[in-house]
Amino acid sequence: MSKIIIENSIVESNERINSNVYLLKVTSPEIASQIGVGQFCNIKVSDTDYPLLRRPLSICDVEDDKLFFLYQVVGVGTEILSRKMKGDRLNILGPLGNGFNIQDDFETAIIVAGGIGIAPFPFLIKKIMNKNIITYVGFKTKADIIDYGLKNCKYSTDDGSLDFKGTCVDLLKSEGKTLNSKCKIFACGPNSMLRNLKEFCSDKNITCEVSLESVMACGFGICQGCAVESKNDDNYKLVCKDGPVFNINEIKI
């Protein structure tokens, strides 16, 4: 595992993408030179004790010495983050966790993302441009749709306000008859979505890696707060240290 760095990073921009999703760009040369696809950073959004903990965010993209984070405002921490402006400083801990494995033998990458679950994929897509890529991406409604950094997108909406009505996994199922062993699925999204996907992958016998989200304090294995049940034995794995990317068969979702 690479070295974990704490870096005082400078906000370059913090752009609102839709009603509650933002794209944060920071200059963070040391972390940017180390971080890999599917890893994450733990960000201190305030200099005070409130909120106390860092906020874990997937790496969305990297350009030279810049880190990109795509995040949804869900609580007090992300709300404070959304008010950061160019020139503000952010204390960032990273790179953390184990990312996607893109070295193995596959010809087509199927990306399956629900909502803000698209966050880790722009960087992944950049790194696998030599492969066929199909992205199945689902949102609640048309107004939520984001295609930032994605490629070859097929959309689903829960309410049918755009394209396929249903979830992105339903969409994948409806189109997925042609999937074969040369395909590999990369997924991120709510647990209900991942459960459906797991079923589909085991039916079709397709390799699938998922990036999990979890509440956590430290991000590097000492607080043990981000436990997820392991499929293979009776123990827990830690999302921060053993993941956040897991083979979908390794864990109980």
């Binding site: 436990a227 049940e229 123990n235």
Partner: peptide
């Protein structure tokens, strides 16, 4: 093996 998740939550 410890307690099942969710194991932690931030408070003020």
């Amino acid at each position: 093996k410890g307690n099942p998740p969710q194991r932690i939550v931030e408070t003020p």
